[in-house]
């Protein structure tokens, strides 16, 4: 498993990313930056890069993180670990990831309640239609709203 056609974020997607538009346009939030983290092969490396991402966030005195991924399967290990590393540091986390019917988290933990499924296909599968299961502006608005609630609670 990895990144299929329907979930992959193209170069054009990054150029017009709805998540960045929504968060940067919200005057109630101080958007500090975008942290790009890779998805390595080995398990030890997966744990390491997630931990380093969380240390960055903590050092920046981050109140909240929105995390997104465009793959599923083995990259869930990275995703769930990073969410856990952030959450145990007291940082509110929400996120966007494809699950559908086939891409439920292959590993789970107690910190995934703010993660929204971005599946758009009727079948809930990797349809091999480029862009079909991409995040949209509505997805971005939902996780931003949920993050605000979570940060208020913290």
């Amino acid at each position: 498993m990895g990144i299929g056609p329907s979930t992959k974020e193209t170069t054009l997607h990054h150029f017009r990313d709805p998540l960045l538009d929504v968060v940067s346009g919200d005057e109630d939030l101080d958007l500090m930056g975008v942290l790009i983290v890779g998805t390595p092969d080995g398990n030890e490396d997966k744990m390491l890069v997630g931990r380093r991402a969380a240390v960055w966030a903590e050092a920046m005195r981050t109140d909240g993180v929105i995390i997104s991924a465009d793959g599923w399967g083995n990259s869930d290990v990275d995703f769930t670990n990073t969410v856990e590393e952030l959450s145990t540091r007291g940082i509110a986390v929400t996120g966007l990831k494809f699950s559908g019917t086939v891409g439920k988290f292959v590993v789970e933990n107690d910190y995934l309640d703010g993660i929204k499924d971005i599946n758009k296909s009727e079948s809930g599968t990797e349809t091999c239609v480029v862009g079909e299961n991409n995040m949209t502006r509505l997805d971005a608005r939902k996780v931003t709203a949920i993050l605000k609630l979570k940060m208020r609670r913290n």
Partner: peptide, 25 residues
């Protein structure tokens, strides 16, 4: 910079394992 507002970071987890699973910056 919006001092006093909640400080938010976006984290993008991107591909990084090999052919057709790579990201350049």
């Amino acid at each position: 910079v919006r001092p006093g507002k909640k400080r938010v970071l976006i984290i993008k987890q991107v591909a990084g394992q090999g052919a057709m699973y790579d990201t350049h910056l």
